[in-house]
């Protein structure tokens, strides 16, 4: 019924992904890094939905569900790790966790 060009959808996914990437790169706060990873995952999911719509197939949406599941698991483990890190180091600075330095 509507004619949304596929480029537009994929471009949106790319832009969101890049924004998440920038955030991961520039933030030192480990919670922000986790949030950024969520943004990137979401962007990847968006790309799958666009593809699913393009081909009118459910596979892309199935993939999105998988990504969703993974994101949920990742967030739970990641947050547990952050709690532990904060408990040990009393900071959220990811650079502080370089005890295994080269």
């Amino acid at each position: 019924m509507t004619n949304i060009p596929m480029e537009a959808g994929l471009l949106l996914a790319g832009i969101l992904f890049t924004l998440g990437l920038i955030s991961v790169l520039i933030r030192r706060n480990i919670i922000f890094m986790l949030i950024s990873v969520e943004i990137m995952l979401n962007a990847a999911g968006l790309a799958f939905i666009v593809a699913a719509t393009r081909w009118a197939q459910p596979d892309g949406q199935v993939m999105f569900i998988f990504i969703l599941t993974m994101a949920a698991a990742e967030v739970s483990v990641g947050l547990a790790l952050i709690l532990q890190l904060h408990h040990q180091l009393k900071t959220l600075d990811s650079d502080a966790a370089n005890k295994m330095f080269g």
Binding site: L25, S94, D95, N98, M100, F101, G102
Partner: peptide, 8 residues
């Protein structure tokens, strides 16, 4: 030197 432990 590349393994400096800084995630970013």
């Amino acid at each position: 030197r590349t393994q400096d432990g800084v995630l970013r």
